[in-house]
Amino acid sequence: MSQEIAVIGSPDFTTGFRLAGVQTFENVPDDEKDDALDDAVERVLDNENVGIIVMYDDDLDHLSRGTRKAVETSVEPTLVTLGGGAGSGDLRGQIKRAIGIDLMEEDD
């Protein structure tokens, strides 16, 4: 079954992806993120046609704890964040927990 890529974020963030043909998107203006981002993410998570969710890394801070955990740990659809440092979501923390050391430590 073929799936789609979904983009969630401010209209400025999603426009570029729409230019590349992404049709599943959720526009959440910056001033509404605290209230509306949770619902947007949950809608996309429930959409079976979505295989990859693209979000801006800082936007994850606007999510409630439960939704953030759900989207970060979701495998289908999987989350890819842009603008962050090391890996999407809590990948770095997960590596630290599983392996015991911070393998994604950035060289400053």
């Binding site: 992806f17 990859i52 740990t73 999987t78 890819v80 890996g87 990948l91 590596i95 599983a98």
Partner: peptide, 18 residues
């Protein structure tokens, strides 16, 4: 988008393996 698809593949594999 092509890089995002590659990142999704690799990072999902990482999550599952972790």
């Amino acid at each position: 988008l092509e890089t995002i698809i590659l990142a999704a593949e690799v990072e999902t594999a990482m999550k599952k393996m972790l």
